[in-house]
Design a protein around this nucleic acid. Structure first.
Lengths: 344, 344
DNA sequence: CTTTGGCACTCGTGACGCTTGAGTGCTAAG
DNA sequence: CTTAGCACTCAAGCGTCACGAGTGCCAAAG
């Protein structure tokens, strides 16, 4: 276990390295941080911390750098969280509440997270397991072309084109819509995929094929994540040589989505902040990266996450405050529209 | 004016520099390209080309590098375009035709352009001046919440939430929708903004405010451009130091959109390929970049562009073939659905 | 008049060695 | 247990040097 001095010194090392990106040595620590200890004493402590595996030395005669494990201890035991000023918090919430629709809300949230943390931000669209179909409509486009519009209880609007073999009359469209509504309204979104629809298709007689076309994705991975300010990643000195790999990763929404889901798996409790550091990531592109994610809720259910992505040398305290505040804001905005109300 | 030899040599310099990213000297040219000339002769020609402003020397005793103006001459007079193999072309068209909806179509097209050219690709959503409102529907979500769905003749679907002060009955919604349809169907999309709506609002009696809410953007800039494979930009050696500026630019859809529109302004003829090189860009971030854009059409009208973005040292011939083929593909896919038909 | 070989010159690059400075570990004294 | 001192290590910076790629110019050959 670490004693108080070691904790102070580890904290100082992380603080200094986060702000300078340079290995930090005993003299710097003695001078810049009010530890009241001589460099020699600090050296002993540093050596101990290195034995514990919390610090690394890039080479002999360089300063120390936190290891992934060191960051882990830092975020779990040492980090001093300073809450946002109430005025800032209010400002964030106001901006979120002002969003014009779901997409705008997520985009704004991602941008705010990126600006606050100085990192690339990622927001996962709300997709609570309990999301239900709140409204459903068939819009006739031409006499053999319909648009199916589905609105979920999260406020997500998805639409899908349906091409028909033969013309359909407006009254028939209305009847069909009514039938669909009777069977699907208030059912879970999952009802739009798989066997439920197959069963429904059988019962719908001649429009069986129409229903079949609806089976499948109602939302693409492209819509499922919003990414903001990839430029921040490119600015990190440690990523100069590997920006392309990271961008390549972020260019693929499906991978990002799977990864977000996996990160969230680590901590299923609502509102919690998950931090994943460096080697704790499975994907090779993400070595040297850390992610800080906070989940937001709709009702009592975890619906999605607000996350920031940066080098392991990231300002965890700021990141945690930022994603917490923004996730809480999302929960609030969603909560303000009680079940039965909606938000596009 | 350039003589044949100078043209051959300029072409060789561009070819070599594009593939190696290294300044190219007289000996390399004499050896690798079948010019049948000694290095000394080539040196004379190189000096002439430099006097003309078509080549630059990074420093004395380095090889030559094409100047922006040199690339300009290259693309206008020297470039050898090799058409795509019919099988590849057919494959592209097949992939485009298979797209499930407008968004998927644009995303796939952008990805194909990026892969073919090895550059970052940008596709601008179709927005022909003549686009009309093909279908319009009001979907009741709750008793004081409606979703307005608008489908344009390009197949773009946009939706916007409308919050009401007081509850509205389903029959009233239907009547309102009918009223809107009568006034707006087949009118230009512009009718959804500005004074047309103001006039309409007056006539709609108590639902005036509802109409007012609809005024404004029907499509955000976020939807207007699709960007693929930003990682390719980060891979270019000349951008190592400035990836962040470029990403910052691409992170802002509104700027990208304005820029695309400006680039297209250069060549208004349908189907044409526009090339903008280095200093020809106004934005400082884009110095050292070139863009190759081909417009696609709906009917006879220019609707949008397929573009690739890379360093000035880019493979213009490949880029031109790629964007031309993909833009033609888009035109074809849009053309196949005649006016009156639609595509989500 | 054009082409070409030769030659002197320039300049970036990489290797080498040197110095400097930051940092360490160890030891002995306080 | 703390700290001052000391010897040691190593990266980074700097000047020197040789090398090589490239140039411009000139005079001779075609």
């Amino acid at each position: 276990m670490l004693n108080q001095r070691q904790r102070d010194i580890l904290r100082a090392v992380v603080d200094d390295y986060v702000s300078t990106a340079e290995p930090v040595g005993s003299r710097t620590l003695s001078r810049k941080y009010g530890l009241g200890l001589s460099p020699a004493t600090i050296r002993n402590a540093l050596a101990d911390l290195e034995d514990e595996g919390l610090l690394r030395q890039p080479h002999t005669s360089a300063g120390r750098v936190p290891s992934d494990q060191g960051y882990r201890v830092f975020v779990e035991e040492l980090m001093a969280l300073s809450p946002l000023a109430p005025s800032v918090r209010a400002d964030l919430l106001r901006r979120q509440a002002e969003a014009e629709d779901l997409r705008d809300l997520l985009t704004q949230t991602a941008r705010l997270a990126a600006v606050l943390s100085g990192c690339t931000a990622i927001v996962r669209s709300p997709r609570p397991a309990g999301a239900r179909i709140r409204a459903l409509s068939l819009v006739p486009v031409t006499d053999r072309e319909l648009l199916l519009v589905v609105i979920s209880s999260t406020g997500a609007v998805t639409h899908r084109q349906v091409l028909l073999e033969e013309p359909i009359a407006p009254e028939e469209v209305a009847a069909l819509a009514l039938g669909l509504q009777q069977h699907l309204l208030e059912r879970p979104l999952d009802a739009l995929t798989g066997r439920v629809l197959e069963g429904l298709a059988e019962r719908m007689g001649r429009h069986r094929d129409l229903i079949r076309q609806v089976i499948g994705r109602v939302e693409t991975p492209d819509d499922a994540v919003v990414i903001a300010h990839t430029a921040h990643l490119a600015r990190q000195p440690e990523f100069q040589q590997r920006v392309d790999g990271l961008l390549d990763f972020l260019d693929r929404p499906d991978r990002v989505l799977r990864w977000m889901q996996e990160v969230r798996g680590g901590s299923p409790s609502p509102g919690a902040v998950t931090i994943r550091i460096g080697a704790e990531h499975r994907d090779p592109e993400l070595q040297g990266c850390s992610v800080v994610a906070a989940s937001y809720t709709i009702g009592d259910e975890v619906a999605g996450e607000v996350a920031v992505l940066g080098p392991t040398r990231l300002d965890y305290a700021t990141a945690v405050t930022a994603v917490s505040a923004l996730a809480a804001g999302l929960s609030e905005v969603f909560g303000a529209r009680l079940p039965g109300e909606g938000r596009q």
